[in-house]
Computed example of a mutant assay.
Amino acid sequence: MTEVANAADVSRTRAWLMAARPQTLPAAAAPVIVGTGLAVCDGVFAPLPALVAFVGAALIQVGTNFANDYFDAVKGADTEDREGFTRVTQSGLISPAEVKRAAAVTFGLAVLSGTYLVYVGGVPILAIGLLSVASGVAYTGGPYPLGYYGLGDLFVFVFFGVVAVTGTYYVQAAAVLADPLAVGVPEGTVTAAALLASLPVAAISTDILVVNNVRDMETDAEAGKTTLAVLLGYRWSRVEFVALLALAYAVPAYFWATDFGPTVLLPLLTLPYAAAVARTVCTERSGEALNPALERTGKLLAAHSALFALGLVV
């Protein structure tokens, strides 16, 4: 374990921060940044819906982190042999009941913050919001936990990428173009450009999970947690990582080749950094090497998304 912690040595505040895992928040901010950049580009920027979308996304991210911490511990997936960052439930820093309660409260706050977005975007946002919260719980909880049956990568790609970016664009476009409390999807609120722009965020967000699962492959297999990495093995998991990176850089090139100016190529400035992370993922197995790679993949997501949004705005 890379971040060994004793209950006696860790304050309650630090323990809760460890459980919330603020280092994962780029996965919540990135889709909002890209969706907002495209909204500015298309002349449908609405600041309040964009801000509330970020708050909701961040709460769902933190709630999912709490739920993962709790369910992985009670299911026995987190053990002393795990090489990842300290999990507060498994390590005894916070009781299981408290972590479970924190997950419920955080998801509840996400639903509460989403009521304004439901007013702006109507029934589609209500359905997406409830499905996102349910999936956050079902990632490691419930009768068929997605992460335990090789579906975690698909979950992240869809909800932290495609749904999050297009949803951010949708609520802003709906605020500008449509009446409140729409039943259907108003015209001009879901575009092909928004769907395409979501793919780099989806790809790099999924790569964060790939690094995590490659690092934990052996302990997950022993615990009966069948992630996609366990199913694919080291070689094909690394192929997946590189293929998702390729998708992340192909999309800005496609935008440039169609109707957008050369500034959409700004994410290519992060290619050397991405190559360095990929080199580590493709050659290392230990937590000592892959934990820093996990953090660097999160930073790559933030940088790529910020530059892509900037390029769209300019």
Rank of each mutant, 00 (worst) to 15 (best):
E3T: 14
E3R: 08
E3L: 13
E3G: 09
V4A: 12
V4D: 06
A5I: 07
A5G: 06
A5E: 12
A5L: 14
N6V: 07
N6H: 15
A7Q: 13
A7E: 13
D9P: 08
V10K: 07
V10P: 05
V10T: 15
S11H: 04
S11V: 09
S11L: 09
S11T: 15
S11W: 07
R12Y: 13
R12F: 13
T13N: 03
T13M: 06
R14M: 11
R14P: 01
R14N: 11
R14V: 10
R14K: 14
A15N: 05
A15H: 06
A15D: 05
A15Y: 09
L17M: 13
L17E: 06
L17W: 14
L17G: 06
M18Y: 09
M18F: 10
A19F: 06
A19E: 04
A20Y: 00
A20Q: 02
A20I: 05
A20F: 02
R21N: 04
P22R: 00
P22N: 03
P22M: 03
P22A: 02
Q23P: 01
Q23M: 09
Q23L: 08
T24K: 00
T24S: 07
T24Y: 00
T24H: 00
T24R: 01
L25Y: 03
L25W: 03
P26I: 07
P26A: 05
P26H: 03
A27H: 01
A28N: 01
A28C: 04
A28K: 02
A29S: 06
A29K: 00
A29G: 05
A29P: 00
A30L: 01
A30Q: 00
A30G: 02
P31Q: 01
P31N: 01
P31M: 01
V32G: 02
V32Y: 03
I33W: 02
I33F: 00
I33N: 00
V34N: 01
G35Y: 02
G35D: 05
G35E: 03
T36F: 10
T36R: 03
G37R: 03
G37P: 08
G37C: 08
L38R: 02
L38M: 06
L38Y: 04
A39F: 13
A39S: 14
A39T: 10
A39E: 08
C41N: 14
C41T: 07
C41F: 13
C41M: 10
D42M: 11
D42Y: 12
D42P: 00
D42Q: 15
D42V: 03
G43T: 10
G43M: 11
G43P: 08
V44Q: 06
V44T: 11
V44K: 05
V44F: 11
V44N: 04
V44W: 07
F45R: 08
F45N: 08
F45V: 10
F45G: 09
P47D: 08
P47K: 11
P47N: 10
L48C: 06
L48K: 05
L48T: 11
P49G: 12
P49H: 12
A50I: 10
A50H: 09
A50T: 09
A50G: 10
A50V: 12
A50Y: 13
L51E: 05
L51F: 15
L51V: 15
V52E: 09
V52A: 09
A53K: 02
A53P: 07
F54H: 04
V55F: 08
V55L: 15
V55D: 01
